[in-house]
């Protein structure tokens, strides 16, 4: 009974989250483009699936992703081995990014841009090795980002100075990086963090910050994602400069 009531509350929340998209699409379709919906039946079925999908995901966050991330962070803090914690952070960042489908897609598109610009030979082999190199670069960047981010939580370095410094580096590198890599580099910062990685990484940061004395979960726990969106830009531009 309580389960049912909880789920009902969550479904209502999801409906509120999804209402804006439905309104925007309906308005654009009916009032601006002035066309009827092509297949209303399957669109409605799809909407119901989206609604329940979001509801289950949000419930699963509380039951599975957040507790796992936090309890592993606590366990690492108790174990007190810095090298293992950093290895874990790196593996989490590298492993989740290398296989990210959005990244695979962008890497392929970027290899076509590079071939067009004459940076690499326009052959299948050259393009796929360029795309693979780009993927490994971004994955390395995210691994390094989580290592630096975890070190920051442990040591209490000021986040804003590190991030501002990173942006200055991005701006400086933009001036030197080849034009065709810049758009790809900027976009790669945004796509590295997937829907499952974000809650896990957030829980890891918050869990670490709350198990170390003198750290505040709000001011010290957040910030890992910020590093993960910053370093890929720097690494990808460096990749463009080296190739």
């Amino acid at each position: 009974m309580t389960w049912l009531r909880l789920m009902l509350r969550l479904v209502t929340g999801s409906a509120r989250d999804l209402a804006p998209i439905v309104l925007v699409i309906a308005f654009m379709q009916l009032a601006v483009l002035r066309q009827p919906f092509p297949d209303l039946g399957s669109a409605l079925v799809g909407l119901v699936m989206v609604l329940f999908g979001l509801t289950f995901f949000v419930r699963g966050l509380d039951l599975g992703l957040f507790p796992l991330g936090e309890s592993m962070a606590h366990a690492f803090a108790q174990k007190g081995s810095l090298p293992w914690l950093l290895a874990f952070a790196f593996a989490l960042g590298f492993g989740t990014t290398a296989a990210e489908p959005a990244l695979i897609l962008i890497a392929e598109e970027a290899s076509q841009v590079a071939a067009q610009a004459g940076v690499i030979a326009d052959t299948g082999a050259a393009r796929s090795s360029y795309a693979l190199g780009l993927r490994v670069t971004v994955a390395l960047a995210v691994g390094v980002a989580l290592v630096v981010g975890v070190l920051r939580i442990l040591s209490g370095w000021p986040l804003h100075l590190m991030i501002a410094g990173g942006y200055v580096l991005v701006v400086v590198m933009t001036a030197f990086a080849p034009d065709e890599i810049i758009g790809v580099a900027y976009d790669s910062g945004g796509i590295t963090t997937s829907t499952i990685t974000v809650p896990l990484v957030t829980a890891l940061g918050v869990g670490l910050a709350s198990s170390i004395e003198g750290r505040n979960p709000v001011t010290d726990g957040f910030g890992l994602i910020a590093f993960a969106s910053l370093t890929p830009m720097i690494f990808v531009m460096a990749y463009g400069l080296l190739i």
């Binding site: 699936m49 989206v50 999908g53 699963g60 039951l63 992703l65």
Partner: peptide, 16 residues
């Protein structure tokens, strides 16, 4: 159970 919810939720969400 939480991980199963997350997976099932994502699959439904993406399909929808």
């Amino acid at each position: 159970v939480g991980w199963i919810y997350v997976l099932a939720g994502l699959v439904l969400f993406l399909m929808g």
